[in-house]
Amino acid sequence: MARFIVRRLFQAVVVLFFVSIFTFLIFQVIPDGTPALRLAGKSATPQTIAAVVRQWGFNKPIWVQYADMMGRIFTGSVISYSEHVNVLSQIQRGLPATLSLAIGAGVIWFVFAVVVGAVSAVRAGRISDRLLALLSLTAISTPTFVVGALGLYFLAWRVHIFPLSGYVPLSQSPGQWFMHLVLPWISLSVVYIGIYSRVLRSTMLDNMNEDYVRTARAKGLSGRRVLIRHVLRTSLIPIVSMWGLDFAGVIGGGAILVEVVFNLNGVGQYAAESIEALDVPPLLVIVMYGAILVVLIAALVDILYVWLDPRVRLEA
């Protein structure tokens, strides 16, 4: 087990290294990205530009620039081009909103997906199953921003149930925090509920035909216990690992659209604004931090998987 964890974490570091190089290079080659021009302003003289180049180190070899940038990313001292502010403090400002959104949505989509998936598996072939299948497919094929926009229009604009947009910190007013987040949570969760419930349904149907489920019934266990302890327990294993990855993905950038639609002022929205301004440093930082998070959670999920499924241990 220890060997497995060490190996897995080492892999994560290697992956991060390649991600960092890749992201760094992408922002080197994007058109109109020459940062000195942008930093120096619209009517800069060649002298100013040269000064900026020297000051920011754009004349150094590219690997030195890379090392500098990575160093700054990990010490949290990256400065943005457009507003000359510390990127980290900007991210920290947006983090509560993003985390509230991601964690809440993650819990919602997991719980609902398990319920919907389990119900359709138990009712397989009946009307309720078909209805849920239809709903799931609709959910999967509706883009997140459409769900968000529809929710805003009907539940916030036409009927004033929820506020139109914005984010209220939890510490300021838990009630308002909740009300402001309901629509974003739903918009973000809908797709995942659709996908996960479908996956869970088919995994459960497969597992229901397993010999050990028949054994469990032959032992005289109640139908519900067989379903929960034997069918659901094993069927959740793939779902849990999917969830880990998707959750990390949402924090690492997957929530951008929802944050923008609902004006939550989270990290995602900050990323979106930086893209618009072609402001490279915040993007680099957000992508790197996002990548670290995704890779770390992926490693954690693998470790969790081994814990959930004892069979994996031997092959580890």
């Binding site: 087990m1 220890a2 060997r3 580890a316």
Partner: peptide
Amino acid sequence: ELRYPVRTGSI
């Protein structure tokens, strides 16, 4: 002879 490696899971 056919040998194959078996990892024991311990470091």
